[in-house]
């Protein structure tokens, strides 16, 4: 590559990186603001929830306590999970088998676990670009949870 072409391209690359950095700084500020507003909203919601605690406590007890096994087809093979339910809520999800998955995709897909625990339900969205692996985890958890559903 000629030095002149290299110089022009390097300058363009640096410009793109600088733009991305600038974007990131602004977006991070905005994200912080959003987090603050959300935290406030959450506090208000918590207060309301406190008032309805008894009703919610009954609702939240969706599942039987215990550890349940579940499995489903992922990207390149079976994904097996152990789902632990304490006090009627999904508390931990351990993936015990994922040998068919590409590590880089599986790492991204594992984000669904946090979401499943947060909403206490395996019905969550898949991770884009890691559809098969995240779908596998979601279905495996759903399989485990189906064994814990109260009749």
């Amino acid at each position: 590559m000629k030095y002149s072409v290299f110089g022009v391209r390097l300058a363009a690359l640096l410009l793109i990186l600088a733009t991305l950095y600038g974007y990131q700084v602004t977006a991070a500020d905005r994200a912080q603001e959003i987090t603050r507003v959300k935290a406030e909203a959450l506090q208000i919601r918590r207060q309301r929830e406190d008032e309805e605690r008894e009703r919610l406590a009954i609702l939240a007890q969706k599942y039987k306590n215990g550890t349940f096994e579940g499995e489903a087809e992922g990207f390149g093979g079976l994904i097996k999970v152990h789902v632990t339910i304490t006090e009627g809520n999904i508390s931990t999800v351990d993936v015990v088998e994922h040998s068919g998955e590409d590590e880089v995709y599986f790492g991204m897909a594992a984000a669904v676990i946090e979401e499943i625990i947060a909403v206490n339900d395996p019905q969550v969205d898949t991770v884009s670009s890691a559809t098969f692996s995240s779908q596998g985890i979601i279905r495996a958890v759903a399989d485990a949870v189906s064994k814990a559903v109260k009749a």
Partner: peptide, 24 residues
């Protein structure tokens, strides 16, 4: 996987979200 990185960056920028250093 490399192109998923570009897709992720562009999707996040389009949605106005802050970028994170994920494996893509």
């Amino acid at each position: 996987t490399g192109f998923s990185g570009i897709k992720y960056l562009m999707t996040a920028i389009g949605a106005g979200e802050s970028l994170s250093m994920n494996s893509f």
